[in-house]
């Protein structure tokens, strides 16, 4: 197996930094929050100040504290959903791709059905019927979100598995009589690691969006602080139209940043999976030194202006007679 080396492009580094920052926030957020996010001890609708970095809500709650505390619920739900969905798509995708035939027909049909049903309306319908106490449970919500978010990954993994199933190492495992589930999960799955990682990040991205959206329309418990409920309260108190931007902009930006970070990391994985997406191998500094254009146009192979130094591999050895 190839070693997993994600290209260190600026995009990936930025993405990792953003994601890392929010993971730290998930862990420490509720501890470092200056106030109880539900406490209504302060005057309403204070603008940002040294005391309240992001001001207060119409109930006098500290918005910055809500943002810090809210990070955990948002990220935990997204993580649970991402994990469950990835496990689901791995099982369905690899089984469909490896077993082929009737099981493949059935499993592909299943994932295609889930792909075709629009996710959010289904989520809303399920959620609308949930008892209120389940709506505040991160795991229940995460589970439901994962139910609407696994199908895409399954489809991608199925295709990848099909391309692997006739490889030598799988064939060898089959011949020595390994059990099917062992071939699927200890021979094939490790080779799908980049695809799995990409699918995991994608489902987390989807889950953040789905969870925040459910919270925003008031379908999760409004007493659990997450970025979506913050937006819910801001919206229901007409914060956007009253120009209380400090109330509704920060959670939105946080959501977008998490998403951007995840997507940037995914770029790196995409480049790992599809070598054509990688940079051409000529760094911009070297191009400049050799008088080459910033990018190579198809059908116009660059001609270096300055004479190329003899490549190291061709440097004359001492014994050569001139």
């Amino acid at each position: 197996m190839k070693t997993l080396r994600v290209p260190r492009s600026p995009k990936v580094v930025t993405g990792l930094a953003i994601v890392g920052f929010f993971i730290v926030l998930t862990v420490v957020g509720p501890w470092i929050a200056p106030d109880n996010p539900s406490s209504t001890a302060y005057p309403a609708l204070l603008g940002p100040s040294a005391h309240h970095w992001l001001g207060t809500t119409s109930l006098g709650q500290d918005i910055f504290s809500q943002l810090l505390v809210g990070a955990r619920a948002t990220m935990v739900v997204a993580f649970v959903a991402g994990l469950v969905a990835t496990l689901l798509s791995m099982t369905v995708g690899i089984a469909a791709g490896y077993l082929g035939g009737l099981p493949d027909e059935g499993l592909s049909m299943l994932s295609n059905v889930f792909l075709a049903i629009p996710g959010l309306p289904l989520l809303i319908v399920i959620d609308a019927y949930l008892p209120v106490n389940s709506r505040s449970n991160a795991f229940v919500i995460g589970l439901i979100i994962s139910l609407t978010g696994w199908a895409w990954g399954a489809r991608v993994l199925r295709a990848q598995t099909m391309s692997l199933r006739n490889r030598d190492f799988v064939e060898a495992a089959r011949i020595i009589g390994e059990k099917r589930y062992r071939i699927m999960f200890s021979e094939i799955a490790p080779n799908l690691l980049p695809v799995l990682a990409s699918s995991f990040l994608f489902t987390i991205l989807y889950s953040v969006g789905a969870y925040v959206t459910l919270a925003y329309i008031g379908l999760t418990s409004t007493s659990v602080w997450n970025w979506g409920t913050m937006l819910y309260w801001a919206q229901s108190n007409n914060a956007p139209l009253s120009n209380e931007w400090y109330w509704f902009v920060p959670p939105g930006i946080c959501i977008a940043l998490v998403g951007t970070g995840l997507a940037l990391v995914n770029f790196g994985i995409d480049e790992f999976i599809n070598p054509r997406l990688r940079a051409s191998g000529l760094s911009s500094k070297q191009r400049k030194e050799r008088g080459l254009a910033r990018r190579t146009r198809l059908g116009l192979t660059p001609v270096s202006v300055t004479r190329a130094p003899t490549p190291r591999s061709l440097q004359p050895n001492p014994g050569v007679a001139e």
Partner: peptide, 16 residues
């Protein structure tokens, strides 16, 4: 021959 016709793709460079 690809380089002769300038059809060679990156990172190919005609160096002399």
């Amino acid at each position: 021959v690809y380089a002769l016709t300038r059809l060679l793709r990156a990172p190919g460079v005609i160096s002399g």
